[in-house]
Design a binder for these strands. Sequence first.
DNA 1: ATTAACTATATCACTTTTGACATGGAAGTC
DNA 2: GACTTCCATGTCAAAAGTGATATAGTTAAT
Lengths: 104, 104
Amino acid sequence: MNTSKKKRLEANGWKVGSSAEFLNLTAEEAAYVEFKVALSKALLHLRKSRKLTQVDLALRINSSQSRVAKMEAADASVSLDLMLRSLFALGASRNKVAELLKAS
Amino acid sequence: MNTSKKKRLEANGWKVGSSAEFLNLTAEEAAYVEFKVALSKALLHLRKSRKLTQVDLALRINSSQSRVAKMEAADASVSLDLMLRSLFALGASRNKVAELLKAS
DNA sequence: ATTAACTATATCACTTTTGACATGGAAGTC
DNA sequence: GACTTCCATGTCAAAAGTGATATAGTTAAT
Protein backbone atom coordinates (compact mmCIF):
# COMPACT_ATOMS: atom_id res chain seq x y z
CA MET A 1 0.00 0.00 0.00
CA ASN A 2 1.38 3.39 -0.87
CA THR A 3 1.69 6.23 1.58
CA SER A 4 -1.07 8.39 0.23
CA LYS A 5 -3.58 5.59 0.44
CA LYS A 6 -2.50 4.88 4.00
CA LYS A 7 -2.94 8.54 4.82
CA ARG A 8 -6.35 8.58 3.32
CA LEU A 9 -7.46 5.56 5.30
CA GLU A 10 -6.05 6.93 8.52
CA ALA A 11 -7.67 10.28 7.90
CA ASN A 12 -10.99 8.49 7.84
CA GLY A 13 -10.30 6.71 11.08
CA TRP A 14 -9.05 3.37 9.74
CA LYS A 15 -6.22 1.94 11.72
CA VAL A 16 -3.36 1.05 9.45
CA GLY A 17 -0.62 -0.90 11.11
CA SER A 18 2.84 -1.60 9.73
CA SER A 19 5.50 -4.30 9.35
CA ALA A 20 4.56 -7.83 10.35
CA GLU A 21 1.50 -6.84 12.30
CA PHE A 22 0.46 -4.85 9.26
CA LEU A 23 0.86 -7.82 6.98
CA ASN A 24 -1.16 -10.04 9.28
CA LEU A 25 -4.06 -7.68 9.43
CA THR A 26 -4.18 -6.68 5.83
CA ALA A 27 -6.07 -9.53 4.27
CA GLU A 28 -8.89 -9.62 6.78
CA GLU A 29 -8.95 -5.89 7.27
CA ALA A 30 -9.16 -5.41 3.53
CA ALA A 31 -11.99 -7.92 3.35
CA TYR A 32 -13.77 -6.07 6.12
CA VAL A 33 -13.45 -2.71 4.41
CA GLU A 34 -14.55 -4.11 1.07
CA PHE A 35 -17.50 -5.71 2.76
CA LYS A 36 -18.47 -2.41 4.34
CA VAL A 37 -18.14 -0.58 1.06
CA ALA A 38 -20.34 -3.18 -0.62
CA LEU A 39 -22.95 -2.62 2.07
CA SER A 40 -22.74 1.13 1.70
CA LYS A 41 -23.37 0.93 -2.02
CA ALA A 42 -26.23 -1.47 -1.52
CA LEU A 43 -27.76 0.89 1.01
CA LEU A 44 -27.53 3.89 -1.25
CA HIS A 45 -29.03 2.07 -4.19
CA LEU A 46 -31.79 0.50 -2.19
CA ARG A 47 -32.71 3.77 -0.53
CA LYS A 48 -32.80 5.54 -3.88
CA SER A 49 -34.85 2.82 -5.45
CA ARG A 50 -37.33 3.27 -2.65
CA LYS A 51 -37.42 7.01 -3.37
CA LEU A 52 -36.43 7.87 0.16
CA THR A 53 -34.25 10.66 1.47
CA GLN A 54 -31.62 10.10 4.12
CA VAL A 55 -34.00 11.71 6.58
CA ASP A 56 -36.75 9.26 5.61
CA LEU A 57 -34.49 6.32 6.22
CA ALA A 58 -33.17 7.80 9.45
CA LEU A 59 -36.71 8.02 10.78
CA ARG A 60 -37.39 4.40 9.89
CA ILE A 61 -34.40 3.15 11.80
CA ASN A 62 -34.61 5.61 14.69
CA SER A 63 -31.36 7.21 13.73
CA SER A 64 -30.30 10.49 12.19
CA GLN A 65 -29.58 11.86 8.75
CA SER A 66 -25.92 12.26 9.59
CA ARG A 67 -25.61 8.61 10.49
CA VAL A 68 -27.23 7.57 7.24
CA ALA A 69 -24.80 9.76 5.35
CA LYS A 70 -21.91 8.12 7.18
CA MET A 71 -23.25 4.68 6.40
CA GLU A 72 -23.41 5.51 2.73
CA ALA A 73 -19.89 6.88 2.94
CA ALA A 74 -18.73 3.63 4.56
CA ASP A 75 -17.36 5.72 7.39
CA ALA A 76 -15.19 3.95 9.94
CA SER A 77 -17.44 5.13 12.74
CA VAL A 78 -20.41 3.05 11.68
CA SER A 79 -20.89 -0.59 12.46
CA LEU A 80 -21.91 -3.30 10.04
CA ASP A 81 -24.73 -3.98 12.47
CA LEU A 82 -26.36 -0.66 11.77
CA MET A 83 -25.86 -0.99 8.05
CA LEU A 84 -27.41 -4.42 7.93
CA ARG A 85 -30.27 -3.36 10.14
CA SER A 86 -30.86 -0.51 7.73
CA LEU A 87 -30.91 -2.82 4.74
CA PHE A 88 -33.44 -5.01 6.49
CA ALA A 89 -35.47 -1.93 7.38
CA LEU A 90 -35.54 -1.15 3.67
CA GLY A 91 -37.08 -4.54 3.10
CA ALA A 92 -34.04 -6.43 1.91
CA SER A 93 -34.20 -10.15 2.61
CA ARG A 94 -31.29 -12.18 3.84
CA ASN A 95 -30.90 -13.69 0.41
CA LYS A 96 -31.04 -10.29 -1.18
CA VAL A 97 -28.27 -9.09 1.08
CA ALA A 98 -26.22 -12.16 0.26
CA GLU A 99 -26.70 -11.35 -3.40
CA LEU A 100 -25.67 -7.74 -2.94
CA LEU A 101 -22.52 -8.78 -1.17
CA LYS A 102 -21.05 -10.79 -3.97
CA ALA A 103 -17.90 -9.27 -5.35
CA SER A 104 -18.51 -7.31 -8.48
CA MET B 1 -45.06 -15.03 19.08
CA ASN B 2 -45.95 -16.99 22.17
CA THR B 3 -45.00 -15.96 25.66
CA SER B 4 -42.39 -18.61 26.26
CA LYS B 5 -40.49 -17.69 23.14
CA LYS B 6 -40.62 -14.04 24.12
CA LYS B 7 -39.30 -14.95 27.55
CA ARG B 8 -36.49 -16.92 26.02
CA LEU B 9 -35.45 -14.10 23.76
CA GLU B 10 -35.60 -11.58 26.56
CA ALA B 11 -33.63 -13.87 28.82
CA ASN B 12 -30.86 -13.77 26.25
CA GLY B 13 -30.91 -10.02 26.02
CA TRP B 14 -33.09 -9.55 22.98
CA LYS B 15 -35.44 -6.67 23.28
CA VAL B 16 -38.95 -7.76 22.50
CA GLY B 17 -41.42 -4.96 22.15
CA SER B 18 -45.16 -5.27 22.00
CA SER B 19 -48.24 -3.93 20.20
CA ALA B 20 -47.67 -1.64 17.25
CA GLU B 21 -44.04 -0.98 17.98
CA PHE B 22 -43.58 -4.69 18.25
CA LEU B 23 -45.19 -5.30 14.90
CA ASN B 24 -43.07 -2.68 13.22
CA LEU B 25 -39.84 -4.14 14.43
CA THR B 26 -40.57 -7.76 13.90
CA ALA B 27 -39.72 -8.24 10.26
CA GLU B 28 -36.39 -6.52 10.31
CA GLU B 29 -35.51 -7.70 13.77
CA ALA B 30 -36.25 -11.26 12.72
CA ALA B 31 -34.08 -10.83 9.64
CA TYR B 32 -31.29 -9.51 11.84
CA VAL B 33 -31.48 -12.43 14.23
CA GLU B 34 -31.61 -14.97 11.42
CA PHE B 35 -28.64 -13.30 9.84
CA LYS B 36 -26.71 -13.52 13.09
CA VAL B 37 -27.61 -17.15 13.54
CA ALA B 38 -26.46 -17.90 10.01
CA LEU B 39 -23.15 -16.21 10.79
CA SER B 40 -22.76 -18.13 14.03
CA LYS B 41 -23.24 -21.45 12.27
CA ALA B 42 -20.83 -20.48 9.54
CA LEU B 43 -18.26 -19.51 12.14
CA LEU B 44 -18.54 -22.78 14.01
CA HIS B 45 -18.26 -24.84 10.87
CA LEU B 46 -15.37 -22.87 9.48
CA ARG B 47 -13.48 -23.00 12.75
CA LYS B 48 -13.98 -26.73 13.02
CA SER B 49 -12.97 -27.30 9.44
CA ARG B 50 -9.75 -25.43 10.21
CA LYS B 51 -9.22 -27.71 13.22
CA LEU B 52 -9.03 -24.79 15.58
CA THR B 53 -10.22 -24.46 19.16
CA GLN B 54 -12.09 -21.42 20.39
CA VAL B 55 -8.87 -20.33 22.08
CA ASP B 56 -6.99 -20.62 18.80
CA LEU B 57 -9.47 -18.42 17.04
CA ALA B 58 -9.58 -15.97 19.92
CA LEU B 59 -5.83 -15.50 19.64
CA ARG B 60 -6.08 -14.87 15.91
CA ILE B 61 -8.61 -12.12 16.34
CA ASN B 62 -7.17 -10.64 19.55
CA SER B 63 -10.22 -11.60 21.49
CA SER B 64 -11.04 -14.19 24.13
CA GLN B 65 -12.44 -17.70 24.26
CA SER B 66 -15.60 -16.49 25.91
CA ARG B 67 -16.30 -14.05 23.08
CA VAL B 68 -15.85 -16.79 20.53
CA ALA B 69 -18.26 -19.00 22.45
CA LYS B 70 -20.77 -16.16 22.51
CA MET B 71 -20.37 -15.59 18.80
CA GLU B 72 -21.06 -19.22 18.10
CA ALA B 73 -24.07 -19.04 20.37
CA ALA B 74 -25.33 -16.00 18.44
CA ASP B 75 -25.47 -14.18 21.74
CA ALA B 76 -27.15 -10.78 21.76
CA SER B 77 -24.04 -9.21 23.24
CA VAL B 78 -21.91 -9.75 20.15
CA SER B 79 -21.91 -7.56 17.10
CA LEU B 80 -22.08 -8.69 13.52
CA ASP B 81 -18.87 -6.74 13.06
CA LEU B 82 -16.93 -9.09 15.28
CA MET B 83 -18.48 -12.14 13.70
CA LEU B 84 -17.68 -11.02 10.20
CA ARG B 85 -14.16 -10.03 11.16
CA SER B 86 -13.76 -13.51 12.59
CA LEU B 87 -14.95 -15.13 9.41
CA PHE B 88 -12.48 -13.09 7.43
CA ALA B 89 -9.76 -14.01 9.91
CA LEU B 90 -10.57 -17.63 9.18
CA GLY B 91 -9.91 -16.94 5.55
CA ALA B 92 -13.45 -16.62 4.28
CA SER B 93 -13.76 -14.42 1.23
CA ARG B 94 -16.53 -11.92 0.70
CA ASN B 95 -18.13 -14.21 -1.84
CA LYS B 96 -17.83 -17.12 0.53
CA VAL B 97 -19.61 -15.13 3.22
CA ALA B 98 -22.31 -14.16 0.78
CA GLU B 99 -22.74 -17.82 -0.05
CA LEU B 100 -22.94 -18.78 3.60
CA LEU B 101 -25.62 -16.22 4.21
CA LYS B 102 -28.12 -17.57 1.77
CA ALA B 103 -31.20 -18.92 3.49
CA SER B 104 -31.07 -22.67 3.82
C1' DA C 1 -29.61 35.70 -6.20
C1' DT C 2 -32.81 33.57 -2.81
C1' DT C 3 -34.97 29.95 -1.21
C1' DA C 4 -35.73 25.12 -0.43
C1' DA C 5 -34.55 20.34 -0.22
C1' DC C 6 -31.03 17.09 0.25
C1' DT C 7 -26.48 15.49 1.67
C1' DA C 8 -21.60 15.72 3.94
C1' DT C 9 -18.86 16.20 8.01
C1' DA C 10 -17.65 17.27 12.89
C1' DT C 11 -18.47 16.98 17.77
C1' DC C 12 -20.18 15.02 22.04
C1' DA C 13 -22.83 12.80 25.99
C1' DC C 14 -24.69 8.49 26.34
C1' DT C 15 -25.09 3.55 25.29
C1' DT C 16 -23.49 -0.77 23.66
C1' DT C 17 -19.88 -3.87 22.72
C1' DT C 18 -15.34 -5.42 24.03
C1' DG C 19 -11.47 -8.32 26.02
C1' DA C 20 -10.34 -10.15 30.18
C1' DC C 21 -11.27 -12.90 33.86
C1' DA C 22 -13.64 -16.26 36.78
C1' DT C 23 -16.01 -20.33 37.11
C1' DG C 24 -18.69 -24.48 35.92
C1' DG C 25 -19.66 -28.26 33.01
C1' DA C 26 -18.79 -32.04 29.53
C1' DA C 27 -15.93 -35.57 27.56
C1' DG C 28 -11.95 -37.86 27.37
C1' DT C 29 -7.28 -40.13 29.37
C1' DC C 30 -4.61 -42.12 32.82
C1' DG D 1 -10.82 -40.49 41.38
C1' DA D 2 -7.61 -36.92 39.42
C1' DC D 3 -6.17 -34.46 35.46
C1' DT D 4 -6.59 -32.26 30.91
C1' DT D 5 -8.86 -30.10 27.21
C1' DC D 6 -12.49 -27.75 25.41
C1' DC D 7 -16.74 -25.04 25.58
C1' DA D 8 -20.64 -22.17 28.09
C1' DT D 9 -22.00 -18.32 30.81
C1' DG D 10 -21.65 -14.26 33.95
C1' DT D 11 -19.49 -9.86 35.24
C1' DC D 12 -17.20 -5.48 34.54
C1' DA D 13 -14.00 -1.47 33.26
C1' DA D 14 -12.62 0.30 29.03
C1' DA D 15 -13.30 1.02 24.21
C1' DA D 16 -16.15 1.66 20.28
C1' DG D 17 -20.52 3.01 18.29
C1' DT D 18 -24.80 5.87 18.77
C1' DG D 19 -28.39 9.62 18.05
C1' DA D 20 -28.57 14.29 18.28
C1' DT D 21 -27.10 18.62 16.90
C1' DA D 22 -24.76 22.15 14.32
C1' DT D 23 -23.17 23.72 10.22
C1' DA D 24 -21.55 23.81 5.53
C1' DG D 25 -21.93 22.21 0.72
C1' DT D 26 -24.80 20.92 -3.34
C1' DT D 27 -28.53 20.99 -6.59
C1' DA D 28 -32.53 22.68 -8.51
C1' DA D 29 -36.45 25.83 -9.04
C1' DT D 30 -38.57 30.35 -9.21
